[in-house]
Lab assay of single mutants.
Amino acid sequence: MASQGTKRSYEQMETDGERQNATEIRASVGKMIDGIGRFYIQMCTELKLSDYEGRLIQNSLTIERMVLSAFDERRNKYLEEHPSAGKDPKKTGGPIYKRVDRKWMRELVLYDKEEIRRIWRQANNGDDATAGLTHMMIWHSNLNDTTYQRTRALVRTGMDPRMCSLMQGSTLPRRSGAAGAAVKGVGTMVMELIRMIKRGINDRNFWRGENGRKTRSAYERMCNILKGKFQTAAQRAMMDQVRESRNPGNAEIEDLIFLARSALILRGSVAHKSCLPACVYGPAVASGYDFEKEGYSLVGIDPFKLLQNSQVYSLIRPNENPAHKSQLVWMACNSAAFEDLRVLSFIRGTKVSPRGKLSTRGVQIASNENMDAMESSTLELRSRYWAIRTRSGGNTNQQRASAGQISVQPAFSVQRNLPFDKPTIMAAFTGNTEGRTSDMRAEIIRMMEGAKPEEMSFQGRGVFELSDERAANPIVPSFDMSNEGSYFFGDNAEEYDN
Rank of each mutant, 00 (worst) to 15 (best):
Y219S: 13
R416T: 10
L266R: 12
R461F: 00
S60H: 00
D72Y: 06
E24Q: 15
G490K: 09
G249R: 12
E484W: 07
S376L: 04
W386F: 02
V285Y: 11
S413Q: 07
E114Q: 13
G187F: 04
A218H: 05
R74K: 14
M331W: 06
R55Q: 12
G54Y: 07
I138K: 10
L266Y: 08
G362E: 10
T433R: 14
F304A: 09
T130Q: 08
V183R: 04
A442I: 14
A234Q: 08
N250G: 12
M43H: 13
R174L: 03
R446K: 13
I119F: 05
Q58A: 10
R436W: 07
A70V: 01
M1D: 11
S359P: 04
R99G: 12
I265M: 15
D128T: 13
K184M: 09
A27Q: 14
G460F: 02
P318D: 05
Y148W: 05
T6H: 07
G54E: 12
F429V: 00
T360K: 07
R8P: 09
E244C: 05
R174Y: 02
V100M: 12
T433F: 09
N59W: 05
T437I: 06
M481W: 15
E53G: 02
K273H: 01
I57W: 01
A271L: 08
K91Y: 05
Q311G: 07
W104N: 04
T430C: 07
I116V: 15
S438G: 15
F230N: 05
Q149P: 04
F258I: 01
M371N: 03
E24I: 12
D240K: 06
I225F: 12
R204K: 09
N142P: 10
A218K: 07
R461T: 12
R348N: 07
G185L: 07
T437K: 10
L47F: 01
Q409H: 14
I138V: 06
A237E: 05
I257F: 14
R446D: 15
N247S: 15
E495G: 10
P453R: 15
R342S: 13
L264S: 03
L379K: 03
L68N: 12
R446E: 15
K103Y: 01
G450I: 11
T215Q: 14
R342D: 03
R19Y: 08
S367V: 06
S69K: 02
Y281V: 11
M456F: 00
E220H: 13
L298V: 09
A366N: 05
E18C: 07
R204W: 10
M189R: 01
